[in-house]
Design a protein around this nucleic acid. Structure first.
Length: 311
DNA sequence: CATAGAACCTGTATGC
DNA sequence: TGCATACAGGTTCTAT
């Protein structure tokens, strides 16, 4: 479940504990999931990943949407995506590593930085850097106008000052999709996952399956603003944790789960109107909404997707 | 090119 | 008690 607030919390931990440190050794667990899946997107595989990273010094911790990367003194990026259950955890030498530890970096201050991942949807790779499309900073944590090649297709996120909310709203209005599907499309705007999409839509009083096409521009702006506000609040709380699958680099849980108004609240009264929150399947997952204050609207047609665009 | 759905994983909860 | 099934869900890949 790591979405933007959770990934940002992890980034802050890496900035404190990994930036400025040199990697002395890289140890990759020998099971097939660790050697194949965790580095599945790294050209050259596990051995090459370890070789290229050994001896490097981290110069910055950067994040765009749910992607996180450490810049190195070799002008490359160690890119990480946490997937569903990926974690970076600091450890003291000699102490046992967390369960499902896939690889461990021994840093030059003598501490270990573990990457653990129960379900292995997360991954790590070393990628070259390229200029950003718009000439702005690559993401939060660095002013350099560069992004890892594998992150180039990810849009700026809702906490990025360079995100043009009006432009995002226009893109959404030109699509033939539902508003939530577009919120979750990382090429449109990044950082939003299932939890914060439902929370943002609840705040904006918009149902997840409303057709974005035909919605008023200011209504879409309200959806984007509400979602940004929820994520800002969640970040202040250290993120949302339901279990041990999301924790920060020190193993601590965030507490924003107490503030959720829609997600996971099926059958409980809406905090605004007392109607019971519903859960329905959508995009192979669940959508939670208030049937009264998020009224049904015109649904997306699916057959009249318009394509235009002018580069 | 745009869009929709499958596939990738494993631990936990629930049903029979 | 044991087995089967559902569910959690972000991204990439594949098919249309």
């Amino acid at each position: 479940m790591p979405e933007l607030p959770e990934v940002e919390t992890v980034r802050l931990g890496l900035r404190t504990h990994a930036v400025g440190r040199r990697v002395q050794t890289v140890t990759i667990a020998t099971d097939p999931v660790s050697t194949r899946r965790t580095v599945r997107r790294h050209d050259g595989g596990a051995a090459d990943f370890a070789d290229r990273l050994t001896g490097r010094t981290f110069t910055a911790a950067v994040r765009r949407g749910k992607y996180l990367w450490l810049l190195t003194d070799a002008d490359e990026a160690v890119v990480a995506h946490l997937g569903m259950s990926g974690q970076f955890r600091l450890g003291e030498p000699g102490r046992s590593a967390p369960p499902h530890t896939r690889l461990t970096l021994r840093l030059d201050d003598g501490r270990d930085l573990h990457f653990a991942d129960q379900r292995s949807f997360g991954h790590l790779l070393i990628a070259p850097l390229e200029p950003t499309a718009d000439g702005g900073p690559g993401g939060q944590g660095s002013d350099a106008a560069i992004v890892p090649s594998v992150v180039a297709h990810i849009a700026r996120d809702l906490l990025d000052p360079l995100t043009d909310m009006g432009s995002v709203a226009s893109t959404m209005r030109r699509s033939g999709s539902e508003v939530k599907r577009l919120l979750l499309d990382q090429r449109v705007v990044s950082g939003v996952g299932n939890i914060y999409a439902d929370e943002g839509l609840w705040r904006a009083r918009i149902r997840f399956d409303r057709a974005a096409q035909g919605m008023r521009a200011d209504t879409l702006r309200r959806v984007l603003d509400s979602t940004r506000e929820v994520m800002t609040d969640a970040l202040a709380a250290g993120g949302t944790s339901f279990d041990e699958l999301y924790v920060d680099v020190n193993g601590s849980s965030g507490y924003f789960d107490r503030s959720l108004r829609a997600y996971g609240q099926e059958g409980r009264p809406c905090g605004r109107c007392d109607a019971l929150i519903r859960r329905v399947p959508f995009m192979n997952r669940s959508s939670f909404y208030c049937p009264r204050c998020q009224p049904a609207g015109r649904s997306a047609s699916h057959s009249t997707a318009r394509t235009r665009g002018r580069g």
